[in-house]
Design a protein around this nucleic acid. Structure first.
Length: 825
RNA sequence: GCUCGGAUGGCGGAAUUGGUAGACGCAGUGGACUCAAAAUCCACCGCCCUUACGGGUGUGCGAGUUCGACUCUCGCUCCGAGCACCA
């Protein structure tokens, strides 16, 4: 009797089996080749969404496929558990972030288990556990000792009502993401990771990551932003520390007529002090600094500035250059000071025009002659130097080097490289994060908490202020501690770390989740790391992926890790789209994965996610498409139950034509599916091939199959293969069908089938016949038919005759086993 | 503005090395089964002409290379993403 496919029963049964048999547990075994497949761990927001489902379906196929290929597979899951939403929920609902987070984790773990993913749940980690962040604190202190952590005052985005610093990502259109109040710039002390130390190496290694999408590498290269240029020192007219600038155009130095400083630059106020410009400069700086960022840098923002009252000296011309404050100069890039060359930089040109500053042309293009009086815009192109003393007549590209060398010999600068990337500010005035393990002592300064006192546990017995402000600074018992160095009263650092810190090394911890002798067990690290395949959304192309690369290099240099890079191969999956837009609550086009599991079962959801589009592209969600996936599973189910009891002879023969055909389809499909998964993760075409094979099998009649032992044997092989090939995609249904064959369950232990190349060879081939490149006929010829025979057969075709009649055959092109083109005129 | 992607039927997509464009699925149309419906099964399904055989045309646009171009080259258009006063 044929059994009905009931996903609910089947899926529960096999999830319990996998759990009981510990089927997804893999241990360090140097005799086996390892494969570490990882999907980006989720933030426990409450419920899984389709983006998670898609991400984890992709990873699960890879993991199961590798398991079946005999690899020792590490496939873990955990929780990026610190962060703002927990605090928001606490404020809104009066819950505790820890409770809220734990409940969400429990709920989402339950949901992920219902999807049947092949995770080793014993390796689960949550970054909010003290056992996890203890090692992060430990690493922070090591980095501090190695000069990779420092404390500085810097200008940050600040939200007044929320009383907290916001990261760039948390600023939306210049306003706080939580209360929509415009963000202000504010000077604040904070801790920084010196990622800039690694900028050159992070950039170099972009060339050594062939397994990463070019798009992501490009974004990282741009973010790191290496520029070659020169450092130039300008002495102040009245003495004191000189001003240094970075420029990519030292060739234009002879045309530098004034100096521009960022309003944040301390020199602005310093230089104007005591001059008649003092109060005007102060007003200007205050105005710009309190401006909203949008207002200052936005499209409509006008270039403006003010004279400081001071001058510096152009080192090569001796020209007295007025020093201006200019709102368009970025304090964070280069040195925060720019030598202004109005003739050859558009911004400087506009500024000079506005304030009546000198414009000196020093580069003349080949075609036209520029004239400073009639110049309407800056000329930034190439040309020959003029007004540049000994460099006159030199082409400007050579002059870049020549002028740099002159500066170097004058001890006034020289060739240098500048990076756009900035050090990573990790201090957050938030509660729900890993405490920074520092005690501030009035006498000793910032002193690290001794290793034996780690972890600095985040207190959970707190009142959450309605304002959204962190409760930590109000927590006297926690705040006030003796200085670890002198023992005098001191107080703890109340800032917590950016949550990106936790996600920068979690993949290392999966290899040794309960290790308590150090941050990373060298033995498991040496075996499992680096991650062979990392899978996640493109939205992490810069931050998370760059930070993780940085951490890996830091840990390597501390001899804690061996790898240079964390992720050998990276797959960035597209978004899940519905009705032309990304699924989101505000758009009201959200599909809840769990509703789908209830209705169709996890296997159908998995199948659709994998079939509808290749992983890197956006996936268009349609309910009709899901129905189609469900229908297909039903067809496979019926097919297997129809043929599962066929006799299975020792080896299926190939004497019978029909049997041979079945075997050919089987082995062609094995080849296609194997290659599609292995070479390019194109699960959509792999599934399509399985569908084609299913359609072919369904075409056979029962009489046909049962009437010949040879065909029966071939069909038996075919349906068994079908189940094996499907198992990474729809593991529950596959296990059930596998069991129906009387086989031992636990399909990830079933070896992935190999195809027999001999069986792929066709007896006859279809040749397309073209006349002048247009298809006119098809002929079927024996595989080994001689060339002449094929040509004759092609020319004999009536429709071919029709088109060559009365014309001269110029050429006949034969592509073996494919195509024949008759060229006539 | 710069950088990187992308554009193929009514829709999602396929064509892996230049060799039958549209695999597979969805939607649609017709049929079988049924009292009927659902489900299932079978057939058709780019556009235009043709009852059919077949022909013309067709992969964003315009050129080019080639016996042959979705694929390669040059020049555009549009869409998406990232960065954006980076000196």
């Amino acid at each position: 009797m044929e059994r009905k496919y009931d996903p609910e029963v089947v899926e529960k049964k096999w999830q319990e089996f996998w759990n009981k048999e510990q089927i997804f547990k893999f241990h360090l075994d140097t005799s086996k080749e390892k494969y570490y497949v990882l999907e980006m761990f989720p933030y426990p927001s409450g419920r899984i969404h389709m983006g998670h489902v898609r991400n984890y379906c992709i990873g699960d196929v890879v993991a199961r496929f590798k398991m079946m290929q005999g690899f020792n597979v590490l496939h873990p899951m955990g929780w990026d558990a610190f962060g703002m939403p927990a605090e928001n929920a606490a404020i809104k609902h009066g819950s505790h972030p820890a409770v809220w987070t734990k409940n969400n984790i429990d709920e989402m773990r339950r949901q992920l288990k219902r999807m049947g993913y092949s995770y080793d749940w014993d390796r689960e980690i949550a970054t909010c556990h003290p056992q996890y962040y203890k090692w992060e604190q430990w690493l922070f202190i090591r980095m501090l000792e190695n000069g990779l952590v420092y404390r500085k005052k810097s200008i940050v985005n600040y939200c007044e009502p929320c009383r907290t610093v916001l990261s760039n990502e948390q600023v939306e259109d210049g306003a706080c993401w939580r209360c929509s109040t415009p963000v202000v710039q504010r000077e604040q002390d904070g801790w920084f990771f010196k990622i800039t130390t690694y900028a050159p190496e992070l950039l170099e290694w972009c060339e050594k990551l062939p397994g990463w999408p070019e798009k992501v590498l490009t974004m990282q290269r741009n973010w790191i932003g290496r520029s070659k240029g020169a450092r130039i020192v300008f002495d102040l007219e009245k003495g004191g520390d000189p001003i240094e600038v970075f420029t990519t155009r030292p060739d234009t130095l002879y045309g530098a007529t004034f100096m521009s400083l960022a309003p944040e630059h301390p020199l602005c106020l310093q230089l104007s002090r005591g001059t008649e410009q003092e109060s005007a400069v102060k007003d200007f700086v205050n105005r710009v600094l309190t401006q909203e960022w949008q207002e200052r840098v936005g499209e409509t923002a006008e270039k403006e500035g003010i004279f400081t009252g001071a001058y510096c000296i152009n080192p090569v011309t001796g020209r007295r250059m007025p020093i201006y404050v200019a709102n368009f100069v970025l304090f964070e890039y280069g040195t925060g000071a720019v030598m202004a060359v109005p003739a050859h930089d558009q911004r400087d040109f506009e500024f000079a025009k506005k304030y009546g500053l000198d414009i000196v042309i020093v580069i003349q293009p080949e075609e036209t002659e520029l004239d400073s009086e009639s110049l309407t815009e800056a000329y930034a192109g190439e040309g020959r130097l003029v007004n540049s003393h000994e460099f006159d007549g030199m082409d400007n590209v050579s002059a870049i080097k020549a002028v740099s060398e002159k500066l170097s010999s004058m001890n006034r600068g020289g060739t240098t490289v500048n990076y756009r990337i900035r050090d990573w500010g990790i201090s957050r005035q938030r509660y729900w994060g890993a405490p920074i393990p520092i005690v501030h002592c009035p006498d000793c300064g910032a002193i690290p908490v001794p290793d034996e006192d780690l972890p600095v546990v985040l207190p959970t017995d707190i009142e959450f202020p309605k304002s959204g402000r962190s409760p930590l600074p109000d927590l006297d018992w926690w705040l006030n501690v003796p200085c670890p160095q002198c023992g005098n009263p001191a107080h703890r650092e109340t800032d917590t770390m950016d949550t990106f810190v936790e996600s920068s090394w979690y993949f290392d911890r999966y290899a040794c989740p309960r290790y308590d002798k150090g941050i990373i067990d060298p033995e498991t690290d040496g075996y499992w790391l680096p991650v062979d395949q990392y899978i996640g959304g493109i939205e992490h192309a810069i931050l998370h992926l760059l930070y993780s690369r940085f951490f890996t290099k830091v840990l390597r240099d501390m001899k804690i890790k061996r790898s240079d890079e964390p992720f050998t191969n990276l797959l960035t999956q597209g978004m899940v789209i519905k009705d032309g837009a990304k699924m989101s609550k505000s758009k009201g086009n959200v599909v809840d994965p769990e509703d789908l599991i209830d209705k169709y079962g996890a296997d159908t959801v998995r199948l659709f996610c994998l079939f509808a589009a290749p992983p890197e592209r956006d996936l268009d969600w349609t309910s009709e498409g899901v129905e189609g996936a469900a229908r297909f599973l039903g067809r496979v189910w019926n097919l297997v139950f129809q043929y599962k009891d066929l006799e299975r002879p020792a080896s299926p023969g190939t004497d019978n034509d029909q049997a041979k055909k079945v075997r050919r389809i089987t082995h062609k499909t094995i080849k296609k599916v194997t290659e599609d998964i292995h070479n390019r993760f194109h699960f959509n075409t792999a599934v399509a091939a399985i569908m084609e094979m299913t359609n072919e099998m369904a075409r056979l009649t029962a009489e046909e199959v049962e009437g010949s032992p040879e065909i029966a044997a071939a069909v038996h092989e075919a349906v068994r293969s079908l189940v094996i090939l499907l198992s990474p995609f729809v593991p529950h249904a596959a296990e059930e069908l596998w069991e129906a064959f009387g086989e031992k369950p636990g399909m990830v232990r079933v070896p992935w089938p190999a195809f027999n190349p001999e069986l792929l060879v066709e007896d006859e081939v279809l040749i397309v016949v073209q006349v002048n490149g247009k298809k006119r006929a098809e002929i079927v010829v024996p595989l080994d038919a001689p060339e002449d025979h094929v040509k004759q057969a092609a020319l004999a075709e009536p429709n071919v005759q029709r088109f060559i009649e009365g014309k001269t055959i110029r050429k006949i092109i034969l592509v073996p086993k494919k195509l024949l083109n008759v060229v006539v005129s």
